[in-house]
């Protein structure tokens, strides 16, 4: 019942994108998100799409996977596009009904926006698809490292994130087990009104809480037994290395920005 929930969308692989340094990947993703908003016409946006398509091709991810991450956002995209379609005036009027007015400019604007959002989502899911959750938090810890100066407990935050991610599948499994056990005792979770269903969850939630606390205590004990004392002076099993590959990726991103800005200067804006 619960096994179709996928948390942490990591899709293991050994492609060029998978092997990029996660820190670089995070920064590049942020840069790409910014880059998507630079172009003012189709040439620039086309470049952004081209960049994304190349990156996806390099990552060797099944296209279906990316579609899966866009699908849930589709209603939002459509809604935004629809709003823009009627909100932006100008150009020739194509269709009119009461206060609703569909103009050519509105149509173009809606399409432009939709492509932008799709790029945004596909680009950021490329990061989570090609980077394992632990690697991701590891990289985040490093990137946020400078905040230690102003006493932000970066290591502790990252550790909490790692533990939380690690225990999601365990808790899902546990929930499944407890639900089965209560169903075996005749608990009815599939029928009744809203209130009844909420009540029916009590026999599941209480044991789940109890076992989460038990697990937390056990984990804390195990960590203390191994002399865990926070991030200070800690070395890492997996060292992150930036290499030529990462430099090349940064260079490509810079190139994208330059090209987009130049295109913006030389060609007419669409909006």
């Amino acid at each position: 019942m619960l096994n179709d929930i996928t948390i942490g969308q990591f899709f293991p692989g050994n492609s060029l994108i998978h092997r990029l340094d996660p820190r670089v990947k995070i920064l590049l993703t942020i840069a790409y998100i910014a880059a998507v908003f630079v172009p003012v016409n189709w040439y620039g946006l086309g470049l952004a799409v081209l960049f994304l398509v190349t990156a996806v091709a390099l990552s060797r991810l099944p296209v279906k996977l990316l579609w899966k991450s866009i699908k849930p956002i589709l209603p939002i995209i459509l809604f935004t596009a629809l709003l823009n379609m009627f909100y932006v005036g100008g150009g020739t009027v194509l269709w009119e009904w009461g206060i609703l007015k569909l103009t050519s400019k509105g149509l173009v604007n809606a399409a432009f926006l939709a492509v932008r959002i799709v790029c945004l989502i596909a680009g950021s899911s490329l990061l989570t698809y090609t980077t394992g959750p632990t690697t991701l938090t590891d990289a985040l810890e490093r990137l946020l490292g400078p905040l230690k100066v102003i006493r932000v407990p970066v290591h502790e935050i990252a550790m909490m994130m790692t533990i939380a991610l690690r225990f999601i599948p365990t808790l899902v499994e546990e929930t499944d087990k407890i639900m089965s056990a209560q169903k075996a005792r005749g608990a009815d979770m599939e029928s009744g009104g809203l209130l009844q269903r909420i009540k029916a969850l009590v026999p599941v939630l209480i044991p789940l809480f109890v076992s989460s606390f038990r697990r937390a205590y056990e984990l804390a004990m195990a960590m203390e037994c191994r002399c865990y004392h926070g991030g200070e002076g800690r070395t890492r099993m997996k060292q992150l290395h930036m290499g030529l590959r990462d430099a090349a990726a940064v260079a490509v991103m810079l190139l994208l920005f330059t090209a987009m800005i130049l295109l913006n200067c030389w060609t007419a804006p669409v909006l």
């Binding site: 546990e174 087990k177 056990a181 075996a184 044991p207 076992s211």
Partner: peptide
């Protein structure tokens, strides 16, 4: 009637 493994975890 079904008693699961480690059934003590289902008490509530």
């Amino acid at each position: 009637g079904m008693v699961f493994q480690y059934p003590e975890h289902q008490l509530f």
